[in-house]
Each structure stands twice: as C-alpha cells, then as structure tokens.
Design a binder for these strands. Structure first.
Length: 137
DNA sequence: GCCAACGTTGGC
DNA sequence: GCCAACGTTGGC
C-alpha cells in the first residue's frame, strides 16, 4: 500500500513536539473516538503525520513518521482501543497556522477543519504537498 | 429506536 | 469564559 498521510493533534501542555523530540519516540494512545481510532488502525509503518499543536499555538509544527503500527492502547484496560508509535522526522521551517489553513481555499475540505474535534485526522497527498510548500516553500 | 440532556473538545 | 460541534447516555 502506498504511503498515507495523517495529522495528529496534541495540546502542547500535555505533549508537545519538543517532548516527542526529547523522547525520540512517542506512543500515540488515549484516543477514545471511533473515527480517530479508525484512522489510527489504518496507519502503516512509514506513513507520515503532521504534528499539530491544539489550543496553544494552533499550528502544524513538525512531521512525524509512524514507527510502529497496529498496537493496542496500553492505557486501555479492556484492550479495545488502538495506538501507534511515532518518531519525529523534522520540524517545519515555518509552522502552518490554523488561520492560514482556514484562509486557504485549497484547504477548505481538510478534515482538520471540517471535523475540528477529531484528534487524528486524514491528510490527502495533495493537502500534504501543499502544506509542505507553505511551510518550506 | 428515537431524542433530549449532558459532557468533552477546541476555537475564539 | 463562552459557545459550537459532536459523541454518549439514559428515559421512554
């Protein structure tokens, strides 16, 4: 299967990009939303994900890669929820803010905006390329 | 099975 | 701090 792209939200107060870089690898667990969990289950090792800071910053700050997929959430005693592990790839030269994303007609259908409460969202290859060009172009 | 009430998340 | 969006719960 070809590589897919994702967006993972985190409140930097709870777990920031810098925390991920410091640890080297982070487990993405605690997701208790079925749609977000389905996204987690669809992830494959090697997929890439934007790391988005919600609440504080409200911007995409970096790129992470899925290092382990199809895990069971260790924080779920019933073992029903999914988790993955991620590693930082690189920080974006210029973070892309939610404001920029909302203001751009090319990103009008992005799941991040349409389903704003989803903690794990899908990014299409077109959206991925476009956001990268905003950040590093 | 429907729907109102409530809780949570996240933007503003 | 407020409110909108969405999910979940519980009464019927």
């Amino acid at each position: 299967m070809s590589k897919r792209y994702w967006l993972m939200k985190s409140e930097p107060d709870a777990y920031s990009w810098d925390d991920l870089v410091e640890e080297g690898e982070g487990t993405w667990d605690g997701v208790r939303n079925h749609r977000a969990a389905n996204n987690l289950r669809a992830m494959q090792v090697g997929d890439e994900a934007f790391f988005y800071h919600s609440n504080i910053g409200k911007e995409i700050v970096g790129i992470a890669t899925i290092s382990e997929a199809g895990l069971t959430d260790p924080s779920d005693p019933e073992g029903k929820w999914a988790a993955v592990k991620v590693k930082p790839v690189r920080k974006l030269a210029n973070p892309v803010t939610l404001k920029q994303i909302k203001a751009d007609p090319k990103l009008a259908d992005i799941e991040l905006v349409k389903l704003s409460r989803l903690s794990v969202a899908v990014i299409t290859p077109e959206e991925w390329k476009y956001i990268i060009s905003m950040a590093e172009g």
